[in-house]
């Protein structure tokens, strides 16, 4: 089987340059590619367009890239919880393209599966539809949305094998699955990387064909954004 393993995050992110478009998996801070984000900070690449459902918090996730002024444009569905983001958006330093969450997911999936554009009812009649083609299907208006084009996707999974087959845990699957395979180069970091043949083919969430590079990440912090507990 073809081996996709690389030994370090540095090798995994080789080729990322300023001005590129990146997809980053995760929902809030759940399932974000922590190791890849740290490496982007270290590399200092700037002028990035980041496609990600959220923009992290002030001191974690994409917030780290914002602090460093590495992001030029953000494509996201919800960007609360981040003061520096607010400041840069209001001052015009940061361009923000707010996109309905289901459309965001589908624009990634479409890119992954070779569909250049699709019609969706989401956003019809709102400012999201401005400048977009409208067409009726079954008596209901839909707007045309185009698949994203990205240079790299940065994916976080729970387990993976060296063939690039990956498995997610719980709700950390979120945008990681539709993004994995949607960019020219798809980089996966996993908490546990196992040899080829260790994982059952029945368990795989994303087949290795969608992955170019896989590595075992380290020092996962996995912060909880809203800790809520019940009494009993």
């Amino acid at each position: 089987m073809i081996n996709k393993k690389v030994n370090s995050v540095q090798k995994a992110l080789k080729g990322i340059e300023s001005g590129m478009t990146l997809m980053l998996g995760g929902f809030g801070l759940c399932g974000i590619p922590e190791n890849a984000i740290s490496e982007l900070v270290r590399l200092g690449v700037s002028g990035l367009t980041c496609i990600s459902n959220n923009a992290g918090v002030d001191d974690f996730g994409l917030g780290l890239l914002l602090q460093n002024h590495q992001i030029k444009k953000m494509i996201a569905s919800y960007v609360g919880e981040n003061k520096e983001f607010e400041r840069q958006m209001l001052s015009g330093e940061l361009e923000v393209q707010l996109t309905p969450q289901g459309t965001l997911a589908e624009c990634c999936r479409a890119a992954k599966v070779g569909i250049p554009a699709f019609y969706t009812p989401a956003g019809y009649g709102t400012e999201v539809a401005e400048g977009k083609e409208v067409r009726d299907f079954n008596g209901k208006p839909h707007i045309l949305e185009e698949a994203y084009k990205a240079d790299f996707s940065l994916i976080k999974a729970w387990k993976g094998d060296e063939a690039g087959n990956i498995i997610f845990k719980a709700t950390a699957r979120n945008f990681n699955l539709p993004m994995c395979g949607a960019a020219k180069i798809n980089v996966v970091e996993v908490e546990e990387l196992v040899p080829i043949g260790t994982l059952s083919p029945n368990e795989i969430h994303v087949p290795g064909v969608f992955v170019q590079r896989i590595f075992e990440g380290k020092d996962y912090k996995k912060p909880i954004e809203q800790l809520t507990v019940s009494e009993s």
Binding site: Y78, V79, L98, Q101, G102, T120, P121, A122, Y124, T126
Partner: peptide
């Protein structure tokens, strides 16, 4: 300040 529509537009449209 606009935080975004999240999934609301998809939900109400469908």
């Amino acid at each position: 300040l606009v935080k975004g529509m999240g999934g609301a537009m998809d939900l109400v449209a469908s």
